[in-house]
Amino acid sequence: MKLLSDPLMRAWVWLVGLSLGSTVIATSVARIEGVGITLAGATILVLAWAKARVILSRYLGLAQAPFWHRGFSIVLAIYCAGLLGLYLIA
């Protein structure tokens, strides 16, 4: 538990968890049909956005730079929303 008080370690645990989550969802897609596939895809994109945020905040240290953190977060959110839009159009 003490290890998880380290923000870097916590970030790594989050990244591993989110990556495993994406892969599990993607491998289970074979058993789902219709709108379930689209929902799974949207969830996978949301998880990718969350992973990118963790890397920017903790690995690249933007958590200590509020101005840049806000800027990158906004651009990343808009970009991922764009990807989601392109995915849903298909």
């Binding site: 994406s22 993607a26 895809g41 996978i44 994109l45 998880l47 990718a48 992973k51 920017l56 690995y59």
Partner: peptide
């Protein structure tokens, strides 16, 4: 490089 991969991986490999 890490950041690019976490976006590239789901889009190319996972999205159906």
């Amino acid at each position: 490089v890490d950041l690019v991969w976490v976006l590239l991986f789901p889009v190319i490999y996972l999205l159906r």
